[in-house]
Write a protein that binds this DNA or RNA. Structure first.
Lengths: 160, 160
DNA sequence: GCCAGATGCTTGACGCTTCAACAAATAGGG
DNA sequence: CCCTATTTGTTGAAGCGTCAAGCATCTGGC
């Protein structure tokens, strides 16, 4: 990771150390809680829910797998596996794209739409309780700003 | 998830929606980048690094498995598996506790200490680049405050 | 037009996490 | 004391993500 030889690494100072631990705690625990609630109440992983929610918002309830992967922040491989599983349960089906024979569209079925719709209220309530209840309105702005900056940096890190 | 019947769920407003998407993006992508760097440069997952780093800071380079699990925000089962793998590589060993015959101590070996020490500069540099470089000093405060509030909420959610 | 490289997606093996079941030791109430 | 409930930890199976390899299709320069 390009540590200049002969120079001290840029260690984290106390503030950074503290902030990093809090962020790491959220990264570790929050996904597990969300998975737990959704699994228990709707038989879905958080990622499966996210994918189906994205499809439910899309025109014609369908998206190219690549686009879906990008919006879900996932690898194409991961998405392909998940779509296969959702397909087995009848909530999503694959359709060849009319424009480009390479690309596949994932389409949310009516049953699938019903599934997300039913799961949504419980999931949103959990997000409210775990993420937003402990925050005031200013905090929400800060959260968006800070995470937005990091997320941008992460995007550029991939190709840049 | 206790959605009051007959009442509308507390849907996310636009600001919350936006903040939630940014946070989700960070939760999805940052761990993967950290794992990638550590795996490539040191043959460690981020979680393995985290565990060994915690041990390296502890008195006598040792901690009860329960305490280690709590500090690492992990289940006991997950930790037990990881310790087994680290033990196989000679970086950690298990020792029975002198006080309580139920508890096991994980001890970082000298080789293990060398391993974390060698991995640290590269890892810290990555954290600086991906997390703190896009933030100014105020942002770091906000990050700590916001994630601290969420992390507290998550802790209370488990037992409370 | 043709062909090399790029793009889009799938697949199977491997490794890690979770979950449930279990075992051993301790603490606490009667 | 004893018996039960709790704490601490391990294990194996099942499920999911990553990785590398592979195939089909498209694009762009010649």
């Amino acid at each position: 990771m390009d540590v200049p030889r002969g120079l001290d690494p840029r260690w984290l100072d106390d503030d950074q150390q503290h902030a990093w631990r809090q962020l790491a705690a959220v990264m570790l625990k929050l996904p597990s809680e969300l998975d737990h609630q959704l699994q228990h109440d709707a038989g879905l992983s958080h990622f499966e829910y996210w994918v189906m929610a994205l499809l439910s918002e899309a025109d014609g309830h369908r998206l190219r797998l690549s686009d879906l992967a990008a919006q879900a922040n996932a690898s194409l491989s991961r998405l392909s596996h998940v779509v296969t599983r959702l397909e087995r349960r009848g909530w999503v089906r694959r359709t060849p794209s009319p424009d480009d024979a390479r690309t596949t569209l994932a389409v949310l079925t009516d049953t699938g739409l019903g599934q997300v719709t039913a799961a949504a209220p419980g999931h949103v309530e959990t997000v409210q309780q775990l993420v937003f209840d402990p925050l005031d309105r200013e905090d929400v702005d800060h959260l968006a700003r800070v995470c937005g900056a990091i997320a941008d940096r992460l995007d550029r890190h991939r190709d840049g």
